[in-house]
Amino acid sequence: MFSRIFGKPKQETNALGTLDKLNETLEMLEKKEKVLIKKAAAEVEKAKEFTRAKNKRAAIQCLKRKRLYEQQVEQLGNFQLRIHDQMIMLEGAKATTETVDALRTGASAMKAMQKATNIDDVDTTMDEINEQTENMKQIQEALSAPIGAAADFDEDELEAELEELEGAELEEQLLQPATTAPAAPVQAPAGPQRNRPTPKRTAEEDELAALQAEMAL
């Protein structure tokens, strides 16, 4: 009976359609994020290849592209967080709207039965609507805030990252088994032999060992 009098509310249909749209957008952002992560990993592999070829300039360019992909991944993560926030607020608003509609229907039924208007119920409903409208306005203002451009790259950080890649490549070369044929055994001369002193590690070897420990972390 009340549907014929007041008509069917469209808020529920609109809210469901909006939630579906937000879910589709969220899935799209997640797919883009996975693609960018793969691209960043590919740039690291390219940088390693250029490092082996002693092409430092090309390796640096690969690391710059990797940083750009990482910044885009971070940006997409912020977008997803905002969408999740809006979905939560929209679901809460939908529940509030349904509650207000139920209260409004009850008040209308009482009005039809008692033929009287209860101004307190109207004030309460309007206060709730104004509160939800203000909340929605704050969410829209937060979503419309501009996002800053990517920051300039620090060349020192790129140089340090390239040195880490070079250290990793050197470590791989040191760990490869020797392919040369074993040398013929040399017979030691008879008689007492002196113990040879153990050679001391050079500064380069100490630096390489520290770099290998850092890469292992």
Rank of each mutant, 00 (worst) to 15 (best):
M1V: 09
F2K: 12
F2Y: 15
G7D: 02
K8F: 12
P9I: 01
K10P: 02
Q11K: 10
N14I: 11
A15K: 01
L16F: 06
L16S: 08
L19W: 02
D20G: 09
D20V: 14
N23A: 10
E30F: 10
E30T: 14
K34Y: 01
V35W: 08
V35N: 10
L36R: 03
I37S: 03
I37L: 03
K38E: 12
K38M: 08
V44C: 06
R52M: 05
Q61A: 06
C62R: 00
C62F: 00
L63T: 00
K66N: 02
K66Y: 00
Q71E: 14
N78A: 14
R82M: 12
R82K: 14
I88P: 01
I88V: 15
L90M: 06
T96Q: 05
E98A: 05
T99G: 09
T99A: 13
D101H: 12
A102T: 10
R104H: 07
T105N: 05
S108I: 03
M110I: 14
K111P: 00
A112I: 10
Q114E: 13
N118M: 09
I119H: 08
I119Y: 08
V122Y: 05
V122M: 06
D123V: 14
M126K: 15
Q132A: 13
E134R: 12
M136F: 08
M136Q: 08
I139P: 00
I139C: 09
I139R: 11
L143D: 14
P146F: 04
A149D: 13
A150P: 04
D152R: 15
F153V: 13
F153A: 10
E155A: 08
E155L: 11
D156C: 02
L158N: 01
E161G: 00
L165A: 01
G167T: 02
L170I: 06
E171T: 04
Q173K: 14
L175F: 09
Q176N: 09
P182H: 13
A183N: 15
A183M: 15
A190Q: 11
A190C: 07
P192V: 11
P192H: 09
Q193C: 06
Q193E: 10
R194Q: 13
N195L: 15
P199S: 00
K200F: 07
A203R: 09
D206K: 15
A210T: 05
A213M: 04
A213D: 05
M215P: 01
M215D: 03
